[in-house]
């Protein structure tokens, strides 16, 4: 007759509310950023990634995946991009980026920090999007021209979002919810 749910399960109210907070923040950042004017329409800072990275480091890969899915689905619904190429790009890019970041956090985080993981994640996101572009539009020549720029952009953007995530992780006591996985 023990009613308390197991530690770290989805029914843990504290963790659930923190996840909800991160997901809401990610969706808000996603929509806010989509509304910002940008010199190139598809180049964005990836502010919402801050919250995915925060979730990954504070709660683990499974929760980060939830925050990411909620962000991509709710964000694209709100912006009216659902099931458009933009949605496919963001789902493919962000899911692969998260997979890479989860692996890095698991194996390489003592040498690397949040910033390095974030950079590699952002670059993965961009590279995968260029690959998806090539598959959708079969324009390999254009894709090759874009790749270098997208890697540079990813490194810069990942550095910035990594710093912000690092600041959140060090200032806010999210880790009291649950240690790593």
């Amino acid at each position: 007759m023990t009613a308390s749910p197991p530690e770290g399960s989805v029914t843990s109210a504290g963790r659930l509310s923190r996840l909800g907070l991160l997901a809401a923040a990610a969706v808000a950042a996603y929509v806010f950023e989509s509304l910002l004017p940008s010199p190139v329409p598809w180049a964005r800072i990836g502010l919402s990634n801050v919250f995915v990275i925060t979730a990954l480091f504070a709660f683990g890969a499974r929760d980060a995946l939830l925050v990411n899915l909620i962000r991509v689905i709710a964000g694209n619904f709100l912006m009216g991009f659902m099931f458009s190429p933009a949605f496919v790009f963001s789902l493919a890019g962000s899911t692969s980026a998260l997979a890479v970041m989860a692996l890095l956090r698991w194996r390489l985080v003592p040498p690397l920090s949040v910033v390095g993981v974030s950079c590699l994640g952002a670059v993965t996101n961009n590279v995968v999007q260029v690959i998806v572009f090539t598959l959708l539009f079969s324009a390999a020549g254009v894709a090759r021209g874009l790749m270098g720029g997208f890697i540079l952009l990813g490194a810069g953007v990942g550095f910035f979002t990594g710093l912000v995530a690092m600041a959140i992780l060090s200032k806010v006591r999210l880790e009291t919810a649950r240690p790593v996985d």
């Binding site: 390489l108 003592p110 040498p111 390095g116 990594g162 690092m166 992780l169």
Partner: peptide, 10 residues
């Protein structure tokens, strides 16, 4: 890990 950019990052 959570508060400093490391050499490996750079």
């Amino acid at each position: 890990m959570l508060s400093k950019v490391t050499a490996a990052d750079l």
